[in-house]
């Protein structure tokens, strides 16, 4: 199934709140099978000593399997907060979050850890590799927590590193790798347990433009292979790699459009 067919079947554009709510469905109802992610009215507030910071103020998002989505928006608009909620690293104060047909907001601590381990691959702006561990060991970690035996673990970690062209660097520590290579180790780690979604919060934020392109190629080819990818970025040319762009503003979805529309608006080459 090609990406275009998926997108054609989307009830796009999802520009208005009413339209989005129609797609995400009524509260409490389990979404259909091909929806990987459905959030309904997600709120996340921080109590800063009396003053309440409202990072997310009711976010409705629905993402299908195999989609490649970019999340944009000004600084402080709640992009990272939303990613953390989607990645089960953070729990919302209100709203529903359905992942693969299961309601995450009702899960126990251990169940959440299991979801992070099996369903989610997270790529961070700052890589978040263990500094004293080799590339191979870093990539092995999710498999360690999945209880995969040592031999198979190493084999699969090696394969994942080969997929990001780092087969020759498996014994290097993070500080013996370039920024781009570090991020590729992080991508290999995110993918090693075959997650249903790959989340990336400004994966190129710490990289120069050439290296950023390199990383974007990796994402592109993953998306082409059918991997669901959600990526936060500031940069329009990075977002242009995605097939769909969600823009947040003040903790709410400002717009949610297919790339073609988005690219047109920005006047970027298609």
């Amino acid at each position: 199934m090609s990406q275009d067919i998926v997108h054609d079947s989307l009830e796009a554009p999802l520009g208005s709140t009413a339209e989005r709510q129609a797609v995400v469905g009524a509260a409490g109802a389990a979404p259909g099978q091909d929806w990987v992610i459905v959030t309904r009215g997600i709120k996340r507030e921080y109590d800063m000593g009396g003053e309440v910071v409202r990072a997310l103020r009711g976010v409705d998002v629905a993402i299908r399997r195999n989609e490649y989505v970019a999340i944009m928006g000004p600084s402080g608009s709640g992009k990272s907060t939303l990613m953390n909620v989607i990645g089960c690293l953070d729990t919302p104060n209100a709203g529903e979050y359905w992942l693969n047909g299961t309601q995450v907001s009702k899960m126990s601590d251990d169940a959440l850890a299991r979801v992070r381990n099996k369903e989610i691959g997270f790529v961070f702006q700052t890589f978040n590799l263990l500094p004293r561990a080799s590339a191979l060991h870093n990539v092995e970690l999710p498999l360690v927590y999945a209880g995969v035996p040592g031999e198979e673990r190493r084999r699969r970690a090696k394969e994942a590193l080969e997929r990001v062209q780092l087969g020759g660097r498996i014994d290097h520590r993070p500080n013996e790798l370039s920024g781009g290579q570090r991020q590729r180790v992080a991508i290999a780690r995110a993918l090693v347990n075959n997650p249903s979604i790959l989340l990336a919060d400004e994966p190129t934020g710490n990289l120069d433009s050439a290296t950023s392109e390199e990383i974007m190629k990796v994402f592109e080819s993953l998306a082409d292979q059918g991997q669901t990818v959600i990526m936060v970025t500031h940069e329009p040319d990075i977002a242009a790699h995605a097939r769909r762009v969600i823009v947040l503003r003040d903790g709410m979805v400002h717009s949610d459009e297919r790339r073609s529309t988005f690219v047109e608006k920005l006047g970027l080459p298609a």
Partner: peptide, 16 residues
């Protein structure tokens, strides 16, 4: 703490 965060983000449970 950071290492613990990384491990948790990769699926380490409390007991791990």
């Amino acid at each position: 703490t950071r290492e613990i965060g990384i491990r948790k983000s990769l699926g380490a449970r409390r007991r791990d």
